[in-house]
């Protein structure tokens, strides 16, 4: 059985040599003012909010072309939000049909705290032409959830914080808070660690797995890549997440008869 080698994250060292070789397109998804102050050399800026204002494939295609990305361009995405915003952008590129996109293994703050190079130059970009080969198999919609979430082979994973999950969640979902996926230094745990953790939770094998979070698929985007990183083949992102589910007035489950919020020190 042939399986293409999946590269989920790019290490600091390899990114630095790819920058030197000019063989990579780096996307910084932070806000424009943060990007302008400093960023990883040669990175282009695509604030997540800008992408989300219209993430139809046609618009995404224009953005990708303008960033000088064609089907063969290796892309590395980073943020300063534990990888969640970067994941959402990476997933969008993947959905468009781009096959070589990965996440920087750490955040920009960490990059800077290590004293690594950064500047405030905006690179000159040569426009490129990307194709569209949508990958619907990585997208879940509310309609799709309706028909599939209760199937025995489907696992629905809620990546919001535990208290939010206890308060309300999509019936049948299990809780895997996004914080669980990271280490203090890296946006994702090492593979062996992640495999054990997910294995304990019964997340393994050939299940179809759907992730969701609060509103736009960022936290669950990170979870999407966490699951991919241990080689789980069939993962989907419910990109409109719990916000849409609630607006559609679909059924909601809750942990009853306990005042867990009052245990929080916030």
């Amino acid at each position: 059985m042939s399986q293409e080698k999946i590269k989920i994250t790019t290490g600091i060292d390899s990114l630095r040599s790819e920058i030197r070789d000019k063989s990579v397109r780096i996307i910084d998804v932070r806000r424009e003012e943060d990007y302008k102050q400093s960023h990883i050399p040669t990175a282009v800026n695509l604030p997540l909010a800008n992408l989300l204002s219209d993430d139809s494939p046609e618009r995404v295609l224009k953005l990708v072309n303008a960033m000088g990305i064609d089907d063969q361009t290796p892309v590395v995405v980073y943020d300063d939000t534990f990888g969640a915003l970067a994941s959402r952008v990476a997933w969008t590129l993947e959905y468009l049909g781009h096959s070589d996109v990965s996440l920087l293994e750490t955040t920009f703050s960490k990059w800077k705290s290590l004293g690594l190079e950064n500047d405030n130059k905006t690179p000159e970009i040569q426009h490129k032409e990307h194709s569209i080969h949508l990958k619907p198999e990585i997208l879940a919609t509310s309609d799709y959830l309706d028909t599939s979430k209760d199937k025995p082979n489907v696992l629905l994973i809620d990546n919001r914080e535990r208290l939010n999950y206890l308060e309300q969640h999509i019936p049948g979902a299990i809780s895997l808070p996004y914080r669980t996926l990271a280490t203090p230094d890296k946006i994702l745990r090492p593979k062996e660690d992640m495999t054990r953790l997910l294995g304990n939770r019964g997340i393994s094998g050939n299940s179809e797995i759907i992730t969701y979070c609060g509103s736009v698929g960022t936290l669950s985007g990170l979870a999407y890549y966490a699951l991919k990183s241990v080689g789980l083949p069939n993962v989907k992102l419910y990109v409109r997440s719990f916000k849409e589910w609630k607006n559609l007035e679909k059924p909601i489950a809750k942990q009853q008869d306990a005042n867990y919020w009052d245990l929080s020190a916030e």
Binding site: R201, G202, L263, S264, E266
Partner: peptide, 21 residues
Amino acid sequence: IGSAHFSTRENIQLHWVILED
């Protein structure tokens, strides 16, 4: 739950942990 609890017997308690975790 993003908070921990100091008990009266010099323990620190973590609540609402999934048994498998």
